[in-house]
């Protein structure tokens, strides 16, 4: 499978990365080289093979569904590019 310029731009949109036309052009070639490399997997017969979900066999650990940590909103927002009253500030999203 290979990607065309239109697909690359669509994927960049999904990935929320702004790309110029020239960048998308370069990326198309690079991504196709990687996808070409990945294509070898078609040689492998995976009929009746279960996908691997965990390399270590252990039962998923659970904990009680309660508050474990918190109470420090100021620390949570301490690294935010913009914050006010312990809220993250973003451009207006609702008119």
């Amino acid at each position: 499978m290979s990607v065309d310029l239109k697909t690359v731009k669509r994927v960049a949109g999904l990935a929320r990365i702004k790309v110029s036309d020239a960048q998308a052009e370069t990326m198309t070639g690079e991504l196709n080289a990687i996808l070409g490399f990945i294509e070898q997997l078609d040689e492998v017969n995976t009929d009746n093979v279960e996908p691997l979900t965990s390399v270590v066999e252990q039962t998923m650990k659970k904990r009680s569904d309660g508050v474990q940590d918190g109470g420090y909103a100021d620390k949570v927002v301490a690294n935010a590019p913009e914050s006010e009253d312990n809220f993250f500030m973003v451009p207006k999203v609702v008119e």
Partner: peptide
């Protein structure tokens, strides 16, 4: 660009992300 690190402004939130 919301919780930490670099933020490059844009006309709306999606453009800011991008």
């Amino acid at each position: 660009g919301v919780r930490y690190g670099l933020r490059v402004p844009g006309n709306d939130i999606v453009e800011m992300y991008e």
